[in-house]
Amino acid sequence: MSGGVDSAVAAARMIDAGHDVVGVHLALSQSAATLRESARGCCTIEDAGDARRVADVLGIPFYVWDMAARFKQDVVDDFRAEYAAGRTPNPCLRCNEKIKFAALLDKALALGFDAVATGHYARVVETPRGDGGVRRELHRAVDAAKDQSYVLGVLDAEQLARSFFPLGDTTKPDIRREAAERGFYVANKPDSHDICFIADGDTRGWLTRELGSAPGDIVDTDGQVLGQHEGAFAYTVGQRRGLALGRPAADGQPRYVVEVRPETNQVVVGTADLLGVNAITGDHARWCGPAPEGVVQVGAQVRAHGEEYAATAWAEGDRVEVRLESRVRGVAPGQSVVLYDGTRVVGSATIAAARLEREPVA
């Protein structure tokens, strides 16, 4: 229970469904703020208090579990290291993989609980198996604007078997109305946004404080120096703003970051046509069920609320190869590619490389 409206209604719905529910708030910050500064961030003392008030209304036990050290190691330190290596990570996926559906779920099972329910907008659909049992599949939420299946694409079949997402069949406005009808104080509480451990939303500033200033060159694809930067880690492929180039392009076209080179501390810029890729190699593949066999038709999504693109994909051990039917711009190493079959999540991988292949796959 984060202290927000979604997890509050999720807890209430689990009670309505007949489950024995205990509320748990995760203390993830090693120096939690007393009050929320804005709609950004989470895990403040205020949030814990909001979650406790909801638990009191529901009449359920409530606990705060301190996972700050694990969160720092698996999410914050990973985020810093990825940017330092020139990649663009998604900390929400890492948090779901390492904290909410690993550390939290493992502790819950060890204490005798059966499953974890959260306020994520996604659906678990049960389909018959050949042996008479059922298979639990992860699907997109009904509310496309709030769908969070992308950041849950790291869950495997065993984790899905012990996960519930009670909000997946409802839109956000209806959730707020339900919360108000139930008398929850948090019914109109703003949603949290962006990266929870960077409450002011200034990712570049946070990285500079963590990694220090590291001046270097901004160059074009021919190696000509066009400007300076204070740290290559603050740039990502596809970025246009904040380049502060001293020399305008000869053709007058805007320029974008096309590559980050941490080994030479260079940021490479070029025209928009250099951003289009149609081939992705992903590692750390995670499957929400059986791994695909052979080449399969899928939808591929590379951003949390981005477009889904028609593609083919095939697994190669811990890696996955994805071939897009159209070019996609701004695909950066470190991002995640999540694969879909209709509304069903097939699995995900961390993007290791993206490129343009002129010849179609045989």
Rank of each mutant, 00 (worst) to 15 (best):
R13W: 13
D16T: 08
A17P: 03
D20C: 14
D20H: 15
V21Y: 01
V24C: 06
L26K: 07
L26G: 02
A27K: 09
L28F: 09
A33H: 10
T34N: 06
E37D: 07
R40T: 05
C42R: 13
I45N: 03
E46R: 01
A51M: 02
R53G: 10
A55T: 01
A55M: 08
A55L: 07
A55K: 02
D56N: 13
P61H: 15
D66I: 06
M67P: 12
A68H: 10
A69M: 11
F71D: 15
D78G: 03
D78W: 12
A81P: 02
A81S: 08
E82P: 06
E82T: 08
Y83N: 14
A84V: 04
G86F: 15
G86A: 11
P89H: 08
N90A: 14
P91M: 04
C92S: 13
L93E: 13
E97L: 11
D106E: 05
L109K: 00
L109V: 00
L111C: 11
G112R: 03
F113A: 02
T118N: 12
H120P: 00
R123Q: 13
V125T: 06
E126N: 12
E126W: 05
E126R: 14
P128D: 04
R129L: 14
V134F: 15
R135K: 10
R136F: 01
L138D: 03
R140S: 15
A141L: 09
D143E: 04
A145H: 14
D147V: 04
S149K: 14
Y150R: 09
Y150V: 05
